[in-house]
């Protein structure tokens, strides 16, 4: 189970204004994306350490919810290492070329993805859904001048963030149900394994669409109007 929901606490990060946290998240993400190699490592390690102190979280608490994500990161790294085009190969075999450029690129992408994921997960875990919405809305306030529906965008983004763990839990539940019916996701050839994902993907999508449909009706039923200010 991936635990990326709000966790009650009284850390500095919990008490920080939502708009500052949101702008901080965007700013740090941009800085991380613009840096490379050693500088990127330094910035990432520093940011994660500062966050751990400010959010009162241990290394285990920061990284354990992302355990399942590590497989995805390893895949990204391997894809970059094995398939990046380069004139200078350290080792080559048919179309595979392991080069310094590929290793460097894989390292940077993995570090960027990991750091931004950690930043976002700490943000979600220290900010309630209402605060997330308020933070995004306040940050986008200047865009109202151009008639951009900032309240709607804020609501959509906040719901999307909050529903990531719900979606993962849905997949976990469907996976169990299909395994109970005899599905096996870990056996057979590569093609069989791809095919075996169908019983997982279709119900997950249907469930997600149902949820979205029900949620939109519930939001309207509760009187949400994007053009009205909160009292």
């Amino acid at each position: 189970m991936i635990d990326l929901t709000y966790q009650t606490g009284n850390s500095i990060l919990h008490r920080t204004k939502p708009v500052i946290k949101f702008l901080g998240l965007i700013f740090c993400s941009v800085i991380v994306l613009l840096s490379k190699n050693l500088l990127c490592t330094l910035i990432s390690v520093s940011l994660i350490t500062i966050l751990m102190v400010f959010a009162n979280l241990s290394i285990k608490e920061v990284f354990s919810p992302l355990k399942k994500f590590f497989f995805f990161l390893i895949m990204i790294f391997l894809m970059n290492v094995l398939f990046t085009n380069s004139d200078e190969c350290l080792y080559s075999y048919y179309f595979i070329c392991i080069s310094e450029k590929g290793i460097e690129q894989g390292y940077n992408i993995v570090l960027h993805t990991l750091t931004i994921t950690v930043l976002s997960s700490v943000y979600i875990r220290t900010t309630t859904s209402i605060e997330i919405m308020k933070g995004i809305e306040s940050a986008m306030q200047p865009l109202r001048v151009f008639n951009i529906p900032t309240k709607d965008i804020a609501l959509i983004m906040s719901i999307a963030l909050q529903f990531i763990p719900v979606f993962f839990n849905d997949i976990e539940r469907i996976k169990k149900a299909q395994m109970a019916r005899g599905a096996n996701f870990n056996r057979g050839s590569f093609l069989d394994r791809i095919r075996s994902v169908i019983p997982l993907v279709i119900p997950a999508f249907i469930s997600a669409f149902h949820r979205a449909d029900e949620l939109s009706i519930a939001i309207e039923a509760r009187g949400f109007q994007s053009d009205k200010e909160n009292t």
Binding site: I174, A177, R181, G182, P199, I202, P203, I206, S207
Partner: peptide
């Protein structure tokens, strides 16, 4: 065999015969 709560969320086949055949 286990039938989960709200098991209708696990369906994915095109007709009910195929849905039942999946397990066997």
């Amino acid at each position: 065999q286990m039938v989960f709560q709200f098991p209708e969320n696990q369906f994915f086949e095109t007709d009910i015969r195929k849905e039942i055949e999946f397990g066997i």
